[in-house]
């Protein structure tokens, strides 16, 4: 057994994380749905362990091979990692309309993306951390790229970790084509702590 496979989450731990992510996602979907005044469809959370070289291809597979806007936000505390929020599809001004801004409002597109990402990440990761009884804080979100290919969002060589846990949830709207993907990446050296938190949760149910 290699060092990489030894640290991967077990099937039970993955099942637990998927259900916990589902709960966090439900909280985020409810919050953003209220702000947008729209019904938000939630996906089934997907979890994978990926070698860093395969992350760009995995991102493209999930969000589709077309240009996207993306924001990143790191979280730290008893568990740490990074969340990438990818916005795909939708007209240019769709997000502005959803957030209730008029065209004349001088809100930059970047600010809009940061606002929405911040809401989704805070609610979703906040929900996950709460269920896991983990204390986490967030760094300020930053724009990774506008109108960029998803394969270029994360360069394998910028990751400190050879392997990462990849957790994806997707928010879509019924009457609009905008989709928001929330991808949580956790480095390999966090697997153990996360696994312990999941074991504690599993023992409590």
């Amino acid at each position: 057994m290699t060092a990489e496979t030894r640290t991967d989450l077990t099937e039970d731990q993955r099942d637990a994380l998927q259900e916990i992510a589902n709960i966090g996602m439900g909280q985020a979907g409810s919050l953003i749905g209220k702000i947008w005044g729209e019904f938000v469809n939630l996906s089934i959370p997907r979890i994978a362990h990926l070698d860093r070289q395969s992350i760009p291809a995995a991102l493209t597979r999930l969000v589709g091979d077309h240009s996207v806007n993306a924001v990143r936000q790191a979280f730290h505390g008893s568990i740490r990692g990074e969340v990438v929020v990818v916005f795909s599809g939708g007209r240019d001004d769709e997000l502005r309309e959803l957030m209730g801004y008029e065209e004349a409002d001088s809100v930059e597109e970047q600010e809009l993306l940061l606002d929405v990402a911040n809401i989704l990440v805070g609610a979703c990761l906040g929900g996950i951390a709460e269920t896991l009884k983990a204390e986490i804080g967030f760094s300020a979100p930053s724009v990774m790229g506008l109108d960029i290919s998803p394969a270029l969002l994360i360069r394998p060589d910028e990751l400190n970790s050879g392997r990462a846990l990849f957790l994806e949830v997707r928010f879509t709207l019924e009457k609009k084509s905008l989709a928001s993907h929330l991808v949580v990446l956790m480095p390999e050296d966090e697997f153990f702590v996360l696994g312990q938190a999941l074991d504690t949760f599993l023992a409590s149910i």
Partner: peptide, 23 residues
């Protein structure tokens, strides 16, 4: 876990008698 009011309305319109939120 989908706690949107509209989700609750929809399922009740479809005949569910109650809605319980996760967890």
């Amino acid at each position: 876990a989908d706690i949107q009011e509209k989700a609750q309305e929809r399922v009740q319109n479809l005949g569910a008698i109650a809605f319980i939120r996760k967890p």
